[in-house]
Nucleic acid binder design. Structure first.
Length: 808
RNA sequence: GCGGAUGUGGCGGAAUUGGCAGACGCGCUAGACUUAGGAUCUAGUGGGCUUCCCGUGCAGGUUCAAAUCCUGUCAUCCGCACCA
């Protein structure tokens, strides 16, 4: 008996599929099939190669793709390379090898590793973000945004990573540290290119409702966008002409404002200091500017300084002191707040610390207002101490106040977002050059579209200058150009785009990747997009996924695509970790490479084990030993095949037919629930059952094996093809339709009903499935016999499920 | 501090959504076959004082019946972190 030789079987089918891909656009009659677009988050081609964690996501997406294929779809399942970015550049700095060379090398290696997965990627669709034919369109999108006023230059203190020596978007600052390298982020005043993602804030928020995405990701994006309703209120400054506008979500508490706090960076902060407070104020502003974000965030205790100036509450004309404190953020709202210590925790803490008055304006019971021990932040209660507003419900006033204020002419109703515009320029080499020319006469002029791509020139040193200039600035012959509008000498923009630029739209390009005239043709966009299923890690919950949504909406607005959301369904697979949940990393030395496992156990075994380790959406600790189990399973399937095809065909028994339909049901429903780990255990259970049936009958029938091979094909494609061939077919197993089950055929003749006394199981009754309630109850009593000491006071029977006798 | 997820044998995890807790697999134990075993096969494997009882982080509750629902609480992980 030939044993299961994974190496030979897998090599054979690998080569066949290479020649004859199994994912046709049309069905056997030549009719065009409906498309299903199943997308992986494309990898950065790092020099470290793949580990078993990368495999997991790709296996999940491939299983799903093959399942869709068997359901009759034409599956769009592409792969590409997100190849711009810092590691290649840092490698270049260290080794003097051009990033394009090391990138190409890495892609070659990773592609080889990815091919080991045997996924049905369509390599004709491959894209690479560093390919000029690709980044031509990355630049083109930027030019369109520029033309629409969505890309603009701005000089202001940006997030600066002193290690990467580059500016960062807000989204890239995690806990005050650089998302890439973990270095604490500082502020630096620099001219930057910005993308006005805030113009899309409302749509980005609103359309989240339409997405079939994990709750968690929707929540994270919702919070990131951070929409709030409130009012801007104008406070005149006592004795001066300027006014200070504050933003508040609680205009209903306006009468309770007893002081005001400005952020140290507020434009009026320095000038508000009266002579006797000047020194202290200047010192505070300077100190705040020196501190990093991390530092500021670690403060528990509030700090602050009094300016000596007063603002006037526009409602009651009361003078309130103006303070500065760094708990007020310069770039949220107006950078200034009115403080109502009675009804805001932070204001309360500040007032307590600096001895400022506290006036309660909302009370649960207006007749018994006692001194507050802590801020009363709930907006439910009766308004007090508030002039003409007294007696109103604060719930009502909260929504009406903005309009009242607006009518009074002291402010206006406003909506605010946490979302900031996107710092889009990087002072680095290995990215798409920003296609803008600075002309002394015409200002910023985009590179004419027929001159795109604006190719990245070679440089002598990749090292960032650290002064805020990109290495490109050192290439005079590239920098110096002429203005496309007036022809005068002009200079090129030397900043490059962030890595997100290419990844924000790459999924559009796969389906029309050779198009030199358009980013994507209208036909291809309409036919293949949007993405039906997007699979990847949760680490991109805000960054990549938010940017991609923004890009898609913009491309919708300029008529490139006809949909507003790129990814209909999102699945986040959990991370594979090393022992004790430690993230796999080269530095920790706990990286498990798939290469040896594929060699020793086979691709099919590793694919199935990747799914069997645990629920796909949860993290899982890798344990090499477990793969033996799936390997044994595959061997059992193989032996079953050999036993059954070794001689006279076995006639199907009722038991085999029933088991077959039950299997189809089990696998299909678990697959639809994305419960891939239990799909595998379902197969194992079934195979154990079949093995014992086969022992009695000398094998199982052909149809059972055929169904098994089709069901198994998304998971263990090589073995499935081999089985299908051994069963006498010269077609591919993937030309089948996903099998259907028959409810009738699944039904057992006999059922087992647990018998309980007071909810504790005391026996199991095996009885004909057709038996009625009375029969079951009396047979049950009979079976329990002496255990049922007294006549039950109550008899519970849930059809097909359980019997419970309740005794006193 | 706020929000979310998770908590079940020695381990990874099942449990048709309120109906036999521990499927399936790893590991372990014993046996068989072997010159050999990190191969294969067979049997066993939650705990205990074993006709019975106890067991799903902990404490209560609802129910004929709870891992599942409710109340409270603890632990771990993740996200946000002065957003006015």
């Amino acid at each position: 008996m030939a044993s299961y030789n994974h190496a030979a079987i897998e090599k054979k089918w690998h080569d066949k599929w290479e020649l004859n891909p199994i994912n046709p656009k049309t069905d056997r009659e030549g009719h065009e099939k409906e498309k299903y677009y199943c997308l992986d988050m494309f990898p950065y081609p790092s020099g470290n190669g793949l580990h078993v964690g990368h495999w997991r996501g790709y296996v999940i997406s491939d299983v799903w793709s093959r399942y869709k294929l068997l359901q009759g779809y034409h599956v769009i399942h592409p792969m590409g390379w997100d190849a711009f970015g810092l590691p290649a550049e840092n490698y270049a700095i260290k080794m003097g090898i051009h990033p394009s060379v090391s990138t190409e090398e890495n892609i070659k290696n990773i592609k080889k590793q990815i091919k080991q997965i045997a996924a049905i990627y369509d390599w004709d669709m491959e894209v690479n973000t560093t390919d000029p034919g690709f980044y031509k369109w990355t630049q083109w999108i930027f030019v369109q945004m520029f033309k629409k006023g969505l890309a603009y230059e701005k000089e202001f203190p940006i997030n600066w990573c002193p290690s990467c020596k580059t500016g960062l978007a807000n989204e890239e600052v995690v806990d005050g540290k650089c998302e890439r390298c973990g270095t604490p982020v500082t502020k630096k005043n620099l001219r930057q290119w910005m993308l006005k993602i805030t113009a899309y804030a409302d749509r980005l928020l609103e359309d989240l409702k339409t997405l079939d995405w994990p709750e968690k990701v929707i929540k994270m994006q919702t919070d990131w966008i951070g929409k709030s309703y409130g009012a801007e209120v104008n406070f005149p400054i006592d004795g001066r002409d300027e006014i200070i506008t504050v933003y508040t979500t609680r205009p209903d508490t306006l009468y309770g404002a007893t002081f005001m706090v400005l952020s140290p960076e507020h434009e009026l902060s320095a000038s508000l200091a009266t002579p006797e407070h000047k020194a202290e104020v200047d010192e505070y502003i300077l100190a705040a500017s020196m501190r990093s974000n991390v530092d500021r965030m670690q403060d528990k205790e509030k700090t602050g300084v009094f300016t000596g100036s007063y603002a006037v509450n526009p409602l009651n004309q009361e003078k309130i002191p103006i303070w500065l404190s760094d708990y007020v953020l310069a770039d949220y709202g107006t950078g200034a707040i009115m403080c109502v210590p009675a009804h805001d925790e932070r204001d309360f803490a500040f007032a307590k610390k600096f001895g400022l008055p506290i006036v309660q304006v909302i009370a649960e019971d207006p007749d018994h207002v006692e001194e507050l021990k802590e801020a009363y932040t709930a907006a439910n209660g009766v308004v007090v101490n508030s002039g003409e507003w007294n007696g109103m419900r604060s719930e009502t006033l909260k929504t009406e106040a903005p309009h009242i204020i607006e009518k009074m002419g002291i402010g206006k109703a406003t909506v605010n977002f946490k979302l900031r515009d996107w710092v889009f320029s990087r002072q680095r080499y290995w990215g798409e050059p920003i296609p803008i020319i600075h002309c002394p006469h015409c200002g910023n002029v985009p590179v004419p579209e027929d001159q795109l791509p604006l190719e990245l020139p070679d440089v002598e040193s990749y090292e960032p200058t650290g002064t805020g200039e990109s290495p490109l600035a050192a290439i005079d012959e590239w920098v110096n150009t002429t203005c496309p509008v007036c022809g005068a000498p002009a200079k090129r923009e030397t900043n490059t785009m962030p890595q997100w630029a290419g990844s924000s739209w790459y999924f559009l390009r796969y389906v029309d990747n050779h198009n030199t005239e358009e980013l994507i043709s209208k036909e291809a966009a309409a036919k293949y997009l949007p993405v039906d299923m997007y699979i990847g890690g949760v680490e991109h919950a805000v960054l990549h996924l938010l940017y991609s949504r923004f890009y898609t909406k913009f491309l919708y607005d300029i008529g490139v695509v006809d949909f507003e959301e790129p990814f209909k369904k999102l699945f986040n697979q959990g991370m594979i970790t090393g022992k004790n949940g430690v993230k796999m990393s080269k530095s920790k030395g706990n990286v498990i490479s798939p290469d040896e496992l594929v060699r020793d156990y086979g691709c099919d075994a590793l694919r199935m084990y990747e799914l069997f380790v645990g629920p796909p959406q949860l993290d899982a600790e890798w344990d090499d030993r477990g793969i033996d189990g799936v390997r044994r399973f595959l061997t059992k399937v193989w032996n079953l095949l050999l036993d059954s095809t070794d001689g006279e065909p076995v006639i199907a028994t009722q038991e085999m037919i029933r088991a077959r339909h039950q299997l189809i049901y089990t696998i299909t429903s678990r697959l639809n629930d994305f419960s891939l780990n239990t799909v595998i255990s379902g197969f194992m259970e079934y195979t154990n059952q079949l093995a014992s049936i086969a022992k009695k009958s000398g094998g199982v029938d052909i149809e059972t094996l055929e169904v098994l091979s089709v069901l198994l094909s998304p998971f263990a494609p090589h073995l499935a093809e081999e089985m299908w061939e051994k069963l006498g077919h010269d077609t591919s197993v993937f030309e089948n339709q996903w099998p259907a089950y028959n409810e009738e055929a699944m039904k057992e003749d006999e059922i087992k009903i647990p018998l309980q006394i007071n909810g504790k199981t005391k026996g199991v009754l095996t009885i004909a499935a057709s038996a009625d309630k009375d029969t079951i109850l009396s047979k049950g009593k009979e079976l329990l016999g002496k255990k049922l000491e007294k006549e039950p006071v109550k008899e519970i029977y849930v059809p097909g499920k359980i019997v419970n006798f309740v005794v006193k």
